[in-house]
């Protein structure tokens, strides 16, 4: 007997849609669990106002370096 292609098509659909939904539902569960775990154990650090201080610090370093370079240049003349 020749296989009925349409019946095969419906089987494909049942398996295919079933797998797609099963995969995505699992993915949704995994996402929810994962975000709970991440938020509980690895909360994102709140932005600290230490950033400008750091940049000021590095600015001072740059100024110091330039001054030293100029001094060296003048002395070596």
């Amino acid at each position: 007997m020749e296989t009925n292609l349409v019946v095969e098509g419906f089987k494909f659909m049942a398996l295919g849609m079933g797998t797609v939904f099963a995969f995505l539902v699992l993915m949704i569960f995994a996402m929810n669990i994962m975000s709970k775990v991440v938020h509980k154990f690895f909360p994102e650090p709140v932005a600290t106002p230490s950033a400008p201080a750091q940049s000021g610090n590095s600015k001072a370093k740059v100024v110091a370096a330039i001054t030293a370079a100029i001094k060296f240049h003048r002395e070596s003349k």
Binding site: V6, E8, G9, G16, F23, L24, M27, I28, M31
Partner: peptide, 26 residues
């Protein structure tokens, strides 16, 4: 996350037209 289900449902287009294609041939 639950909007992922919408991305799943849209795959019905694949399997629906699969049946359409085999029905046309059959």
């Amino acid at each position: 996350p639950k909007t992922a289900l919408l991305g799943g449902a849209a795959q019905f287009g694949i399997f629906g037209s699969l049946i359409g294609a085999v029905a046309l041939s059959q």
